[in-house]
Design a protein around this nucleic acid. Sequence first.
DNA 1: GTCTTTAATGAAATCGATTTCATATATTTA
DNA 2: TAAATATATGAAATCGATTTCATTAAAGAC
Lengths: 329, 329
Amino acid sequence: MSTIEDVAKLAGVSKTTVSRVLNNHPYVAENKKALVHKAMEELLYVPNSTAQRLRKQTTQTIAVLIPRISNPFFSKMVEVMENIAADNGLQLVVCQTMYDKKRELVYLDLVKTKQIDGVILASLENDWNEVNDYTNFAPIIFCNEYDDRAQVPTVRLNQFEGAYIGTKYLIDKGYNKIAKCRGNNLSGLVTDRQRGFYHALDEAGLPFSEEWTFTGVSLVEDGRRVLREIIEMENRPNAVFTGSDEVAAGIISEAGRLDVKIPDELAVMGFDDQQIAGLVTPGLTTIHQPVDQIGKRSMEVMIDLLHGKGRMDEQLTLLPLHLVERGSV
Amino acid sequence: MSTIEDVAKLAGVSKTTVSRVLNNHPYVAENKKALVHKAMEELLYVPNSTAQRLRKQTTQTIAVLIPRISNPFFSKMVEVMENIAADNGLQLVVCQTMYDKKRELVYLDLVKTKQIDGVILASLENDWNEVNDYTNFAPIIFCNEYDDRAQVPTVRLNQFEGAYIGTKYLIDKGYNKIAKCRGNNLSGLVTDRQRGFYHALDEAGLPFSEEWTFTGVSLVEDGRRVLREIIEMENRPNAVFTGSDEVAAGIISEAGRLDVKIPDELAVMGFDDQQIAGLVTPGLTTIHQPVDQIGKRSMEVMIDLLHGKGRMDEQLTLLPLHLVERGSV
DNA sequence: GTCTTTAATGAAATCGATTTCATATATTTA
DNA sequence: TAAATATATGAAATCGATTTCATTAAAGAC
């Protein structure tokens, strides 16, 4: 493996001149430039990027924190992000928190050890106070997730509205006993969805039973379990607001197996509009989240920050969401 | 941001001693060790990992090349890999080739610029001769994909057998006009699947029409297109071997829309056994690929290589695959 | 024809860690 | 008790690039 020194020697110039050629500095004579290029080719020279990082104090790497990549919402988001990152010469390190607080903090430490130039937070397991400390070390932005206390650029949707229009739609269709699912954490996103849900219920004067709240629900398998629990209930809900297409798909699939009629016996409202929403039977009525745009915009905001454009104090991008009718409601 | 020098000064020792404390060297007096720890805490010192990389000539980072992360097969694979990587203090850089030769080579260049310690190839767009050059720079292993000429550790399935048992199953069920889909490239994996497919046909003395070969097919949307093309044909196949659950799901979904009976009018054989296979109606009969195991084993092989265990010359791990019956055949 | 710019180059410092080498003291071993 | 070994420490070299600073030659200004 040859170094800049080897190239300099072979070309008969100094390391400085080689570095200048490498970085397209002016003030390098054409003939020397040619010599250097020849030497580089001959030695198959490639600059050691670790040395460049150390000197330039930049890593050209950004980390994206997500719950888990196999959730189609996040894999699509990462797909978009990675493409834009690649176009800009950046590497993307995928960090799965797996819904674990400690793991999230371990990943955030990457920023302290100067292994990355920035963090895109699309997962928030810890309280914001914990995370806030890290904002001193590198740009951190929110993507999809958020917290009201955070003074960082945020690209997200109006989750209150999303949950509200989804619930309202159920109510307008005549459903009056609506169950609700959520995962385990209570981030800004989840809290706002809850508020939107309850707001729609209150507005319609509908009751809500604690019995109809399912927590710790985030996988297809969890959805199947929810359906089985529902049909065992004495006071059965006639609709369920899931907050996740995966969960909704699990409910619909299990309903098919157990011969529960969707939507007649149970209406199912998804969230995300993942690919799967168009593939199950009946199709999933769901809240479309523009995941491409969220990913794209977030990465653009991050790149602007790295380039010194854009400010680190609060800057909010709200993207539109809308309901997609398919048949499960 | 404080450096090792700052810590040394505050603790009243040399950089060397601080470094020794950092690396748990023996031969550091307890009292000095305490002083150093106190200084580190006081200064909120965190070692700069770029400097460590440069000196130690290692990056603790590995790259995984995949076609695209939003394919559930690969997102699941990466999920498993990343978890194991994290447990071993390694970072995982996701590289999507997007089925593009040039992009694949750009990513392989990371290895030349010393930005990563190893590459897991789960995509192969270029000819092996192109890729072979890179094996001098860092360990490269195959995962799922492969090429017979490559002398690198490989974790994969017997794709010939997979295609064979899938096709044979169709034949045994009485289907005699079997169409076939594939993507664009012709890697070892794809070639072997073709061979397995044709072998089953030959064995049964069944004909095959070029008309029934669909290429450039890899997305759900492509599957929908395939179904529409099939029903327009004069000489319609009565079964289709897809090589991908996403494509198969697209076919089944479009069949539902257009009222084509599955499997009576058209049997559909998937490949992968993705989550979606259990969610569409009818359920997808498919070849189960143990994606968890592929990901796990690949990462383990890579870690062994990084630790100097294991050899870089050919070493093959063949994992079992099997057929899962669900109803689309 | 002197004075100021501009162009071209390299030696040395720098980024922040680890490792080698030299040295000093304390402890065993013979 | 002398020699050998183990413990403890720091100065300087090193990893491989970039950047600062100094120097010289050539071009342009007046």
